[in-house]
């Protein structure tokens, strides 16, 4: 097997049907690789929250997965409005989501906390007006 597999996805903004398809694809790939189910789920949950965030807060973006034998690095990049105060955004319950998004079952302000909880490393870089980059590292057991 190659040392690293690189997967790329375009994530459409405001598309609440396709949202999550990039994550599903990565999940299927990891499962196929034989990564243990608990780790697959950890990657899936963190990436899915990040993917949803790009859809609802940033009008879409790109998702990249770099998969190694012992870890997986997910990078979510968007050119959306950015996050002014990252520490505040990380607080459980903090959300700027619209009622429309809440009606979808998201917007509870648990996305970033979930990403922190499930990924081994969660790095958020953001600049207002420029965009956001989230890096999620998950090491396999």
């Amino acid at each position: 097997m190659q040392d690293c597999v690189h997967l790329e996805y375009r994530v459409d903004g405001q598309n609440f049907v396709s949202a999550g398809s990039a994550t599903e694809s990565v999940k299927t790939f990891l499962k196929g690789m034989g990564v243990n189910p608990q780790d697959v789920r950890r990657v899936a949950i963190a990436m899915y929250e990040g993917e949803i965030n790009m859809v609802i807060h940033a009008n879409g973006g790109y998702a990249y997965a770099d998969i190694y034998v012992d870890k997986c690095i997910i990078t979510l990049v968007d050119t959306g409005k950015g996050i002014k105060d990252i520490d505040l955004a990380l607080q459980p319950g903090y959300s700027t989501a619209s009622d429309e998004v809440r009606a979808l079952g998201f917007g509870a302000g648990m996305g970033l906390p979930n990403m922190k909880k499930y990924a081994d490393e969660c790095i958020i870089e953001s600049e207002v007006g420029k965009g956001t980059k989230v890096t999620l590292v998950t090491r396999f057991d």
Partner: peptide, 17 residues
């Protein structure tokens, strides 16, 4: 078990196996 009815419910169930 949910009262929410949209495609993201299915996606969420998939993520959680």
């Amino acid at each position: 078990i949910t009262g929410l009815c949209n495609p993201q419910v299915i996606r969420t169930a998939v993520m959680m196996d």
